[in-house]
Amino acid sequence: MAKVVVVTSGKGGVGKTTSTAAIGVALALGGEKVAVVDFDVGLRNLDLVMGAERRVVYDLIDVVQGNAKLSQALIRDKRVDTLSLLPASQTRDKDALSEEGVSRVIDELRQNFDWIICDSPAGIERGATLAMRHADIAIVVANPEVSSVRDSDRIIGLLDSKTRKAEKGERIEKHLLLTRYDSGRAKRGEMLRTEDVLDILSIPLLGIIPESQEVLRASNLGQPIVASNATSAPARAYLDAVRRLKGETVAMMIPSNRTGVFAKLFRQRAA
């Protein structure tokens, strides 16, 4: 049974696209057939982060409007062949998406993939609600800071009312992905602590991704962090998050970027 996951947040710039790419690669490395779909029409970024910007010929709008077949628009990833990208259009905007068209595309994707990860745009308008409409699972991305958390709470409210599942009276599975976490700043009270965020949002925690310069480096190279530097702290955190997404129980810990012989020995012993 294919699973449709929406990666959403409300607030912009918290790490939805980065996380979509990382989770997509992590799932595909485990052998699953994964499609990542960029719903941010007009401001597409997923293709950049995946390093596929020079291979975009057709996009989601073309498929929705019937100008291209899904197989023509899907771009297979060069690193992991079970991963494909359906990019968004850069020249159109969200009004070009129709609900019926998106529904058709998702249904067709369900036939060919195990996981469909939808990268939602920021905001609460049509783009975001269309991205979440067909989701079975939602990953709500938030930074541990007050405006991000409040916006995420709003988006959780929308997940419980604007999705197909909610309209049928079913509950959509929701997970929190806390990104750009800086434990030093949390300890000093400059950022919200994990417990505070969980107290406000009241949804289960999928993972804590530490703040890291590796992520920006990877994005600029067009390499999702899990592919470019799999031993870095954020990559390991994403890999753990994906294991939890698949149902495994993994102890929650915030990986650190400590390198050096002793730290490496310590990690190996704890593993």
Binding site: R150, D151, D153, I156, I200
Partner: peptide, 25 residues
């Protein structure tokens, strides 16, 4: 359930009891 940010609960007929939090907004 928690009352999420942006949601309004309007019940002029009587008391409202929430088991959960009422979010900011």
């Amino acid at each position: 359930n928690p009352v999420r940010s942006g949601q309004s609960v309007i019940f002029p007929e009587g008391d409202v009891t929430v088991i959960g939090s009422v979010a900011s907004g």
